[in-house]
């Protein structure tokens, strides 16, 4: 990769951080289900996907380290405070019930799938390579999420009601995924990423039929206030406690190997 102009570099850095932080925080959250899931088999599947997310975060932090001069992945992930993170609010919330966790998984992973599909052709080659590599993993995540949505959305009165209210609750949060960055034009111009707005449109096209298939009602998007702020470092009350917990051992001595 030839020398990046400083604006260009800043745009990519910001872009990588927000994606990686989303993956880290959601992977961390979803790992909380390990050993506590609704069925042993599902416990195993959900844990694998949480591991995948952490793997994606690691791959993106590694690009930041190797191509953009940022610190090593462990330092990046385990020493920043909430103001330095760029994740969206959706991933910060506690796991809640399985209805909430599954719905979040469905909304986030669908967006992730489409995002990496777009990035497979990115002009920023290190990112394009990661996108192509993890394509299959995310395909499974989406299949998993869609199957659960369909089954629970059309099962009992209780499961329908739970899934519908989870959807209502998570939808404004999920819209926060697509909070525009100051560098949208820069990224599009250099063919790095076609933009959050474009991604959001593609996402709506995919989730709408799945939600309908599942027998659920998609909330009126235009009437919702997206949960923005995460991309600028403003977070929910849940993020800092999560970070404090996650880094408890690492912080005993961040300079040594564990």
């Amino acid at each position: 990769m030839e020398a990046l102009s400083s604006l260009h570099k800043e745009a990519i850095r910001e872009f990588l951080y927000k994606m990686a932080d989303d993956q880290l925080i959601l992977g961390h959250r979803n790992s909380e289900w390990t050993g506590l899931g609704p069925l042993l088999e599902e416990d195993i599947a959900f844990s694998s996907m949480a591991q995948d997310k952490l793997g994606h975060a690691l791959a993106l932090y590694t690009i930041l380290h190797e191509h953009l001069g940022e610190k090593d992945p462990d330092t990046i992930a385990f020493t920043r405070n909430e103001r330095e993170l760029r994740c969206c609010h959706l991933v910060e919330y506690p796991i809640g019930g399985y209805d909430f966790s599954l719905t979040r998984h469905f909304l986030f992973d669908t967006a992730e799938h489409l995002r990496f599909e777009m990035l497979a052709g990115s002009a920023f080659e290190p990112l394009a390579q990661v996108a192509r590599k993890i394509k299959g993993e995310i395909k499974y995540h989406v299949l998993h999420a869609q199957t659960w949505m369909k089954q629970l959305g059309s099962a009992t009165e209780e499961s329908k009601a739970r899934m519908q209210s989870a959807l209502n609750e998570t939808m404004p949060l999920a819209l926060g995924i697509f909070e525009a960055s100051p560098f949208e034009a820069e990224l599009a111009e250099h063919n790095i990423f076609a933009g959050e707005h474009e991604l959001r449109n593609r996402w709506l096209e995919v989730i709408a039929p799945t939600v309908a298939d599942a027998g659920l009602v998609l909330p009126d998007i235009d009437a919702l206030t997206p949960a923005y702020g995460g991309r600028q470092g403003y977070h929910t009350e849940y993020l800092q406690p999560l970070l404090t917990e996650m880094t408890e051992v690492f912080r005993i001595d961040p300079t040594v190997e564990w």
């Binding site: 390990t34 050993g35 952490l54 793997g55 462990d74 992930a77 917990e245 690492f250």
Partner: peptide
């Protein structure tokens, strides 16, 4: 699992998750 959310560093975090998952 008590330490699954607090494992220090990516390598340990991934390994502990995978290990506890194996036990399940």
């Amino acid at each position: 699992g008590t330490w699954i959310t607090r494992a220090p560093g990516f390598r340990r975090k991934l390994a502990l998750m995978a290990k506890v998952q194996d036990e399940v």
